[in-house]
Amino acid sequence: MRYTEEQVVAAVETLTMERLHAWVREGWIVPASGETFVTYTEIDVARVRLVCDLTDTLAVGEEAVPVILSLIDQVHGLRSELKRIVAAIEQQPEPVKHAILSRIAERPDD
């Protein structure tokens, strides 16, 4: 589903149009740009809610927000990569899968 700016502001209790525009300018929220207006996805709305929770509920300073968002983005990226690796392992012949999983299960030298 796609949301307009007005729908995003209506959906998130503490959000104002000014805050949304500021966060877009900062790059914290990156909506899709159309020919005449921008739209927001459900993921964008969830990110807006997260920023509101960080700044309003948890009193995180605005200088820390981009750091937190970057870390979250990195975690999501790593999860996507891990899913791709798991899918690739699952497609391997049983002896190869067993060898990979055995190697993963080994404890690294400390």
Rank of each mutant, 00 (worst) to 15 (best):
R25K: 15
E90N: 12
H21N: 15
R103M: 13
V45C: 08
A87W: 01
F37G: 00
I72Y: 04
T14M: 12
T16F: 01
T41K: 00
D110K: 00
L71R: 02
H76N: 12
E13F: 00
A105W: 01
P95F: 03
Y3W: 15
P66S: 04
G34W: 02
S70L: 05
S80N: 13
A10P: 02
V9P: 09
S80C: 11
R84G: 06
E6T: 14
T36M: 02
R79I: 12
S80Y: 01
M17T: 10
E26S: 14
E18S: 09
I43K: 13
T16M: 01
Q91Y: 00
L50W: 03
Q92T: 06
T16C: 02
L15D: 02
A46D: 14
V75C: 07
T4G: 07
I43T: 15
Q91V: 01
I72E: 03
W28G: 09
A99D: 15
L58I: 07
R2P: 09
L58Q: 11
D56E: 13
R49Q: 12
P93V: 08
Q92R: 10
V12F: 03
V38C: 07
L101Q: 10
D44K: 12
V30E: 08
L50M: 12
A11K: 07
Q74Y: 03
D53R: 14
W28Y: 07
E6F: 04
S70W: 05
P108L: 06
L71I: 06
D44C: 08
L54F: 03
M1C: 09
L20Y: 08
E5M: 14
P31E: 06
W28H: 12
S80W: 04
R84D: 07
V51M: 05
M1W: 05
V8M: 10
A22T: 13
Y40F: 15
D53L: 06
S70T: 15
T41C: 00
A64S: 13
P31N: 09
W28E: 11
G77F: 00
R2F: 12
L15K: 03
L78Q: 09
A99W: 11
A32C: 04
V45S: 06
G27R: 00
A10W: 01
S80G: 15
D56H: 10
T16I: 01
I29Y: 02
P95C: 10
E106Y: 04
R25S: 15
E106K: 14
V24W: 04
L71F: 08
V96I: 13
V86F: 02
L101A: 04
A10V: 01
V8P: 11
I68N: 02
L15A: 08
L58F: 14
I85H: 06
G61F: 05
L69D: 08
G61N: 14
G61H: 13
L101K: 11
R49V: 05
D73E: 12
Q7T: 10
V24T: 11
M17S: 11
I72W: 02
L20R: 08
V38I: 04
D73W: 02
A22W: 10
T36Q: 05
E42Q: 12
Q74A: 10
V38L: 06
G34Y: 02
V12S: 04
W23Y: 13
P108C: 03
V48S: 10
E6Q: 14
P108E: 09
M1P: 13
Q74P: 04
C52G: 02
